[in-house]
Amino acid sequence: MRAKTTRMTKQKRIILEILRNTDCHPSADWVYEQAKKVIPDISLGTVYRNLNVLKELGEILELNYGSTYSRYDGKANNHYHFVCENCNKLVDVDMPVYQGLDKMVQDTTGYQVKYHRMEFYGICDECLQKMAAEQR
């Protein structure tokens, strides 16, 4: 098994900085476009490889909601997300993670729960405002 230590290359550092300086939970293609501004000769394959390494190191989260592509989060601590079913906006939910849920599942199943992820789905405030304006 490979040890979870790796050298922080310029590419990894730039990709990590990009993700930690945005709240938009971008796709790998978006990260690639941003990284090209700093490292013009970086390849899309390099971005994908480094995203996977950063995920394995626990530096970032990969968010996959059954779509054709993943989105990435530079905030690696466990937190909740809200997904707008209208515009597909993905945002962090600013509330504490309910640790009691881990214990409930563990007590019910006997499984060892390490953590949980939770997403909320609905319509964001911007889409609700647009919908209300269209109804007037």
Rank of each mutant, 00 (worst) to 15 (best):
T108K: 11
V47S: 05
I39M: 09
N21L: 02
W30Q: 00
R71Y: 03
E17N: 13
Y80K: 14
R13N: 08
Q112S: 11
L101M: 12
N88F: 06
H81L: 13
K75C: 07
L19M: 07
Y80F: 04
G74Y: 02
N88P: 01
D107K: 02
G58Y: 01
N64C: 00
E17K: 09
D102C: 15
N21C: 04
P26A: 13
Q112H: 03
Y32L: 12
K89W: 04
K75V: 10
N77M: 03
S70Q: 11
Y72I: 14
Y72F: 14
K37P: 00
G110P: 04
E59R: 14
Y48H: 12
Q34M: 12
Q112G: 05
V91T: 15
D73G: 04
F82D: 12
S67D: 09
H81C: 06
R13P: 01
K89G: 06
Q11P: 00
N64G: 03
L54S: 09
D29S: 10
Y69N: 07
V31M: 12
D73H: 03
N77Q: 06
H25W: 01
Y111N: 09
Y111M: 13
A76V: 06
T68S: 05
A28Q: 07
V105W: 01
Q106F: 02
I39D: 04
E33Y: 02
E62Y: 02
D102Q: 14
V47C: 09
L16Y: 02
R13K: 14
M95D: 14
R71P: 07
W30A: 00
V31S: 09
R49A: 08
E85S: 10
V83D: 02
P40D: 10
Y65A: 06
I18W: 03
G45L: 13
E62N: 04
G58C: 08
L16M: 11
G58T: 12
N88Q: 14
Y32I: 09
P40Y: 06
Q99G: 10
K10E: 15
I18L: 13
K10G: 08
H81V: 13
E59V: 10
A28V: 08
I15M: 07
Q99E: 15
S43E: 06
L61F: 00
S43D: 03
V53M: 13
E56Y: 03
V113C: 09
V38N: 12
L61N: 14
N52P: 00
Y72H: 12
V53P: 03
E85F: 05
H116N: 06
R71I: 08
H116C: 03
L90F: 07
N77L: 00
I14Q: 05
Q106V: 02
I14A: 05
S70G: 13
I14H: 01
L57M: 12
T108L: 14
D94W: 01
L19H: 01
L54Q: 08
N21P: 00
Q106A: 15
H25G: 01
Y115T: 12
C87Q: 11
T109E: 06
E62F: 00
L61I: 06
I18H: 04
N77G: 05
L101E: 07
H25C: 10
G100L: 11
M95E: 15
T68F: 02
Q112K: 11
N88G: 09
Q99W: 05
Y115Q: 13
Y69A: 07
D107C: 00
N52G: 14
L90C: 07
N77F: 00
A35G: 05
M104R: 15
N50W: 02
S67H: 03
T68R: 05
L63N: 13
Y111G: 05
G66D: 11
I14F: 01
V47H: 04
R13W: 02
N86E: 15
L57W: 00
